[in-house]
Design a protein around this nucleic acid. Structure first.
Length: 519
RNA sequence: GGCGCUUUCGUCUAGCGGCUAGGACACAUGCCUCUCACGCAUGGAACACGGGUUCGAUUCCCGUAGGCGCUACCA
């Protein structure tokens, strides 16, 4: 029987959504769309102690920005709710009882202190078949003892009774058959009476079953506990509808070893969160892709390619819809991917240059306002048109000077200041200035200024024929010196375009100023 | 320590027994040119190691080494 494909993304609201989580959600989304199935958004808040206010809203807003849409779940509605685990207590209680009644679980009264003492006493202590009879639980104690403890209201947990010595197989879509012997699995805590909440493992299996999830696509960190989950499905009698698993490789640090962390982002200057996050307790602010000027299409495209790619003959630049067509879980790579933030910037560059110049304006305008400059939208779009193909210099993590394309609207500022502010000083040591401003330059500029002054139509089309003719007749090459006058350095667009943008008055003013100060 | 996953250019990866081991990012060079660029062209750059299996291994199997993860009353 073919079941309708249903997948879920189930974060824990313990803080901002990590970029690795975004990728997991993205793969779930691509898979769901491709199979005409459903994507569920579930909140796994079974650890009341780690709840962070605002995290849930943050996650929802992140996906909204990224264009990843859910079909049901928290804030999206649906028939299988509630989708917040803290609101499903009565459901979990029922299933805990089922396990208890079936002899698949038992009550344990060991306090955290007792457990710690045990761990200190026995090296590599594991709560399992080999040790549970020496612990305080409903298996080792008499029924009377247990009942009296329960009656006294003492706290307890429910542990899963794992039968040792059996090879448990997990059929993973990405990794194939993964086998773990049940002897190395401990009697996991499934439920805590202290807060009347299950742990991840129990809640996860119960919810996935009840929500009719068909495929569990999650990070590799869950692979070791997948056999436990298989055992739970079996204990519940749900083995026939157990979801298929796919464990995704992790995102690693760009340099060095280890998994990607917020620290790496801070150090190398790239965000690890989709949106800027203001921590409600520490007050710390973490940068986000959106605020840094990344386009959501670029983030999604870049992320999708970290661990998957469409194979030979396909362009790496893909829209969400194209990815839906091409995505293939079985073609995901098995090993962790270093987070290449330079390529992320390249993707942003690609999507940015495909946008109309007008679409750059709001962000560019914001940039200019921060510098105390006001310009018309028309002017701003003009500057964008002239400058968006330029490159910017930057310093990388190892303090090397590097160059890269304009990848963000904010890259524009250092390259466009001269459009709005006339050069004040000239660096005579600068290679370009030294080479371009010779002893004849002042005189040439004076004469050129006179020619420009005679031009009535001060547009590119209006001045170019006049000036070109004059230049040819004079047999000189005045452009670099002219650039020194108007820009002050070896940067900027075509000189006629610049002059047209500045207008006749400003152009002549800057020329006169340069002549006066450079002589 | 135990258990599991993993290993192709600097990075992301293609490859599913026979290929000059392909692409993208990054890097270098050339062309273009009024600057810096863009663009275009070109180039350098990889199968961790050791055993098998096979007529033949990057590809399959086993070790070794490295990397990653898990090992909580966190997810």
């Amino acid at each position: 029987m073919e079941r309708r494909v249903r997948v879920r993304f189930a974060p824990s609201p313990t803080g901002p959504l990590h970029i690795g989580g975004v990728r997991t959600a993205l793969y779930n989304y691509l898979f769901a769309r491709q199979h005409g199935g459903d994507l569920i958004f579930r909140i796994e808040d079974t650890d009341s102690g780690r709840f962070v206010p605002g995290a849930e809203e943050y996650i929802i807003e992140s996906f909204k920005w990224l264009g990843i849409k859910f079909d049901e779940g928290v804030s999206f509605g649906g028939a299988k709710g509630p989708y917040r685990q803290s609101e499903r207590r009565d459901i979990y209680r029922r299933y805990v009882k089922q396990l208890l009644d079936g002899g698949h679980a038992y009550l344990a009264f060991d306090t955290p202190e007792e457990l710690n003492a045990k761990r200190a006493e026995i090296e590599n202590f594991q709560y399992d078949a080999s040790t549970r009879m020496s612990m305080r639980n409903s298996l080792s104690m008499s029924k009377e003892e247990v009942d009296s403890l329960l009656a006294s209201g003492v706290q307890y947990v429910v542990r899963f009774k794992v039968t040792p010595g059996e090879d448990v197989h997990v059929d993973d879509i990405i990794r194939g058959d993964v086998t773990i012997n049940s002897s190395i699995i401990d009697d996991k805590v499934l439920y805590k009476s202290a807060d009347d909440l299950p742990t991840y493992h129990l809640a996860n299996i119960v919810d996935d079953h009840l929500m009719e999830v068909t495929h569990v696509i999650r990070g590799e960190e869950w692979l070791p506990s997948a056999p436990l989950h298989v055992l739970l499905y079996r204990a519940f009698g749900w083995a026939d509808t157990q979801p298929r698993f796919a464990h995704l490789p992790l995102l690693l640090k760009p340099v060095g070893n280890g998994k990607l962390s917020k620290r790496d982002g801070d150090k190398l200057g790239f965000p690890v969160f989709p949106l800027e996050w203001h921590d409600p307790v520490s007050g710390e602010v973490s940068s986000g892709y959106r605020e840094k000027g990344y386009l959501p299409e670029a983030v999604v495209n870049f992320l999708a390619l970290l661990g998957w790619n469409p194979g030979e003959g396909h362009d790496e630049l893909m829209s969400l819809d194209e990815m839906v067509q091409l995505f293939d879980l079985s073609k995901c790579s098995k090993n962790g991917a270093k987070f290449d933030y330079v390529k992320a910037a390249w993707f942003n560059h690609q999507y940015l240059i495909r946008r109309n110049d007008e679409e750059w304006v709001p962000a560019f305008d914001k940039l200019l306002r921060e510098q105390g400059i006001s310009a018309t939208a028309r002017q701003e779009a003009e500057v964008v048109r002239m400058m968006k193909s330029k490159v910017i210099e930057y310093v990388d993590g190892e303090n090397n000077k590097k160059k890269r394309n304009i990848s963000f609207v904010s890259d524009l500022w250092p390259l466009t200041e001269f459009f709005f502010r006339a050069p004040v000083t000239f660096d005579r040591e600068d290679k370009f200035v030294r080479k371009s401003w010779t002893e004849s330059s002042a005189d040439e500029m004076r004469r050129m200024a006179a020619v420009l002054a005679s031009v009535d139509d001060f547009t590119v089309d209006g001045m170019k024929p006049v000036v070109d003719a004059w230049v040819e007749q004079q047999g000189i090459k005045p452009w670099n010196a002219w650039r020194v006058c108007l820009v002050g350095k070896g940067q900027g667009p075509d000189m006629y375009e610049l002059a047209a943008f500045l207008g006749k008055e400003e152009t002549l003013r800057r020329m006169q100023y340069a002549i006066d100060t450079l002589c």
